[in-house]
Write a protein that binds this DNA or RNA. Structure first.
Lengths: 119, 119
DNA sequence: CTGAATCCCGAGTGATACTG
DNA sequence: CAGTATCACTCGGGATTCAG
């Protein structure tokens, strides 16, 4: 068990630190990323397959463009949800996969879908 | 214990239903609402005070306009996060408060802030 | 093959004025 | 008091083109 704040304490203090602009903003940024158009699709594919190349992701997510795939992947990388492994070959090859932290994200989606009454 | 899908089953099936457009969209819409600019502030105030009038919310959330407060409150009401009680008096009086479902939302924020390493 | 650069449109957000 | 109507602006998202 980590030494983190208990839920009871969190309920009392909720957003006391969260309400400070910077801290609040990081939660919002993260939620915005999760809600952005292609994020769930990407996480779904990576959760199913563990490792995928850029082109494979593009093929398995109908409608996505290179621009959106690339930019969404970079944002997910910034939050340490996914990781990138680049092979300096020609043609170039890049592999994407969920980090350990990223795999834990599914618990959050589980809670959200439960809250929404979907499951 | 509800008769809902277990987390193990969810991990296997994750987004199998979620990936269907309508179902996916409702999760995205909800996350978008949570990530929108004033939502956390509103939930914070209502979580602290249980009942607040429109004008009180406006006073306690610096910078928010009537337009944004009103539209955010209506979206939160649609998702059954908050509830509205209107008194047909002059001048008009409207009270907002968290629903039972809304109170459970704090668990999700708790999980998210934990995931982000904030707490 | 894996993106970056550019341009464009619509949605989210905001300022102001107005009403029952 | 509790909003709505309207207009303006910014930014996310998409189409296209191009490069290492």
């Amino acid at each position: 068990m980590e030494n983190r704040m208990t839920i009871e304490k969190y309920i009392q203090n909720q957003a006391i630190s969260d309400i400070e602009d910077n801290c609040l903003k990081s939660t919002q940024d993260f939620l915005k990323l999760l809600s952005s158009k292609w994020t769930i699709n990407i996480l779904y594919v990576l959760n199913k397959n563990s490792i995928k190349r850029f082109g494979e992701l593009k093929k398995e997510i109908p409608g996505i463009t290179s621009v959106m795939l690339s930019s969404t992947l970079r944002k997910l990388e910034k939050f340490d949800v996914i990781s990138r492994k680049q092979f300096n070959s020609i043609p170039p090859q890049v592999e994407y996969f969920l980090t350990e932290k990223g795999k834990k994200l599914i618990f959050i989606f589980y809670e959200i879908d439960t809250w929404l009454g979907k499951i």
